[in-house]
Write a protein that binds this DNA or RNA. Structure first.
Lengths: 229, 229
DNA sequence: CCAAAAGTGTTGCTAATACACCCATGT
DNA sequence: ACATGGGTGTATTAGCAACACTTTTGG
């Protein structure tokens, strides 16, 4: 390993794929670019990493600055280092993967701002740079991850019905699940607990609401328990 | 996203965690540093990314230059972007994860070179930088990955006995497996095929050798087959 | 003939699947 | 009373785990 002060350096950026769950769709948060290149094109929220912040911090900062998104589940996804991914010059980006509760008013507010929007996965506009590839990889990761880690709850409000939870899995996995089997399995894991609340404002029997119990999960995870849908 | 020619930039590096399977141990390839910082300390093979190569290419190049390792299974692992991971200045590294066949003479040759060596995972020396963390994450990934993807074969010679394969899983997963159940399961996947060769030079009944059939795997993988140990 | 590892089936249990009806609520 | 989704149990099947002895080979 040689030291390299004197060599030209690639710029380092972060980009975030934020997923949100609408009633019937999985959506991605995009921003509209003001500047060239790809002026006016839709793109992932992101930007350059500063020298005085970690890469993780840069992702969190950009998410808040550009999209008003805060306090979401965030994990590193993959780094993209092709030569020509930015037409200006060499930019390597560390992509992140985030799960947001659309019910969160802070995020709702941000979506009202011009140049920010939620797009259904199967109805994305053309994206700037290689952001299409980044989204594709994020979707892959999400689909894989929900099967063995309890991250789905990050997309739901704190209190949710079993039907909502089931629909979440159906949307992400892209296939229907059996209601009775789903409930049996989910409840047998002993990770979500009944609350004394029910759905409001529906014109049919109101569903009981549940919440995810992270403590129980952490306890089980320590003993080698594995979550699986 | 703002453009940033004028700002100072972090240096961008790659580091590789190369795993190899000894008879009884999972080993990691390390090199001994010639230069400060961490002079003479053991470290992962790696180095700075050049402007005219992709990050993936940089990993491959460093692996060959520093350790003589070529034609191995290589995938991106994770990027490490803490502020002080390099005492000289800001360096962000993209870590890679590689699986090598120790039976490969090209790699054996490299291990003879001074300053390069294979170390058992539970007997690693103190490592330079945050390389300890990188190795830890690579081990985690390996343990996860062998369970659902047929990457274990990358650690074995092209022809191997079922006992070798079983031992591989036992070593990586850190637990004993039942011989009959293991063989039943592995064979029922129809991914490895019998050859007409047997083990040589053992002083007991010689085991039949098998080989992994990548074609069969690719065909099955397309139809949503999932490998699972 | 002995030591060492190769090779081979069955059984019980647990988990996954498939499947259909009654219930509670709001309009 | 009707429309809408909420909520519940059972039977079948498939996969996983536990378990011990015989065979082959070299020394």
């Amino acid at each position: 390993m040689t030291f390299s002060y004197e060599y030209p350096r690639a710029a380092l950026a972060v980009d975030c794929v934020v997923f949100g769950l609408d009633v019937t769709d999985l959506k991605v948060l995009l921003i509209q670019r003001k500047l060239t290149p790809f002026q006016h094109a839709w793109a992932l929220p992101g930007g350059f990493v500063h020298m005085d912040e970690t890469v993780d911090d840069a992702a969190r900062r950009e998410l808040e600055e550009e999209a008003g998104v805060k306090d979401v589940y965030l994990e590193q996804l993959y780094s993209f280092g092709a030569l020509d991914r930015d037409p200006r010059e060499r930019v390597v980006t560390v992509a992140y993967f985030a799960l947001a509760k659309l019910s969160d008013h802070r995020i709702r507010a941000a979506t009202d701002a011009m140049g920010v929007g939620w797009f259904a996965l199967d109805d994305l506009p053309k994206l700037a740079f290689d952001h299409q590839d980044i989204v594709a990889r994020a979707v892959e990761r999400l689909r894989g991850k929900v099967r063995y880690a309890p991250v789905g709850f990050e997309l739901l409000p704190p209190r949710f019905s079993l039907t909502q939870l089931q629909r979440l899995y159906e949307i992400i996995l892209g296939k229907e699940l059996d209601k009775r089997n789903f409930r049996k399995k989910i409840l047998s894991m002993d990770l979500i607990v009944e609350t004394d609340e029910v759905e409001q404002g529906v014109r049919h029997r109101a569903a009981r609401l549940y919440r995810f119990d992270r403590r129980k999960y952490d306890r089980l995870a320590k003993h080698g328990f594995s979550f699986g849908i």
